[in-house]
Design a protein around this nucleic acid. Structure first.
Lengths: 167, 167
DNA sequence: TAGGTTGAGTTCACGCATGAAGTCAACCAG
DNA sequence: CTGGTTGACTTCATGCGTGAACTCAACCTA
């Protein structure tokens, strides 16, 4: 990608690079709001909160360690901890030390939490279709997955303890 | 993309769709922090703040109407207004009613503001390379630009007044 | 067992984004 | 020019995210 001015490239962007960057930045600045608005209106959930519930609902026993859950939901452990506290107050999940290793905390989805995510899922899926999937081709979808895999940067908080993605 | 269950598709995602969505959501949740951290450390700027300064610095006369600037920087007018207030207090920009139409407000970059963006630009460019460009191919970059163009959703705040993107 | 290290999880002060309500300029209808 | 409407912009209360400092469990070494 670089044009030969050193290993890092010049301190400015080529037109092609700028176009890619402009596109990407518009995605990351505008999409969160678009995708979150329906969830907020219908279920009072942020996108990250929905992902937390969703990951839990798909896990065996509806239980995941906090650090693993943060990784799966694409957030920091700190962010997850704050969300977990709110969810606990709403009765949507419980936390308990992992019996196998007290250093870990296992988050468990309650029935009420499961009901919440089940109720919110259609809204979320519709938003994903309306905002994204209905506008891109299958090849575009594969490109998104490919780029994301290449950029898969995880929070420094917990980049360790997980050797690789196997992606 | 849908599998024939109606115009909107079923209320769940196919494996391909889910993969695309998972990739996209990891981009929009993880990249902002990654891209912003260097700017915050070096210049005390958010990504959006940098974009505001950057757009101003590239505009003729270093002046843009607030609504146009919000559009260019991928933010709402409200968000820009808050940023502009902070920038004014730092002496980085000034605001004045548009002489041609008092309903508009024109934001102008000051010398200090220009110096700030010039100083921050190398940090920003390096972050964009380190986090994104160095990891994707030219084809990936084109895919990003293409997808972004297809999804180009602008804040409802100011979707009007601007008939189309010409993109 | 004591002392030190690692790493998971929590907390909290701070700052930013959101969005509804408000202000104001220009325009329009009568 | 009066009253009403549109739309650009601002304000502010509320809530969330961040990151540094902290607590604690398990492990390691002697």
């Amino acid at each position: 990608m670089t044009s030969g001015a050193g290993a890092d490239g010049p301190p400015w962007l080529t037109p092609e690079e700028k176009e890619a960057w402009t596109g990407l930045v518009s995605l990351i600045l505008l999409l969160p709001g678009r995708l979150e608005a329906p969830l907020q209106a219908d279920a009072g959930l942020t996108l990250f909160e929905y992902l937390v519930l969703s990951q839990l609902s798909e896990a065996p026993g509806h239980r995941i360690r906090m650090s693993e859950l943060a990784y799966l939901a694409n957030g920091s452990l700190s962010r997850l901890s704050n969300v977990a506290k709110r969810f606990e107050q709403r009765g949507w999940l419980t936390r308990a030390p992992d019996p196998e290793d007290g250093r870990f905390t296992v988050a468990s989805l309650t029935e009420a939490g499961y009901a919440t995510v089940v109720a919110a899922a259609p809204t979320h899926v519709r938003a994903v279709r309306d905002v994204v999937l209905d506008h891109v081709s299958a090849a575009d979808g594969r490109a998104l997955a490919r780029v994301a895999a290449k950029l898969r940067v995880r929070p420094t908080d917990l980049a360790r303890g997980r050797s690789d993605d196997g992606g």
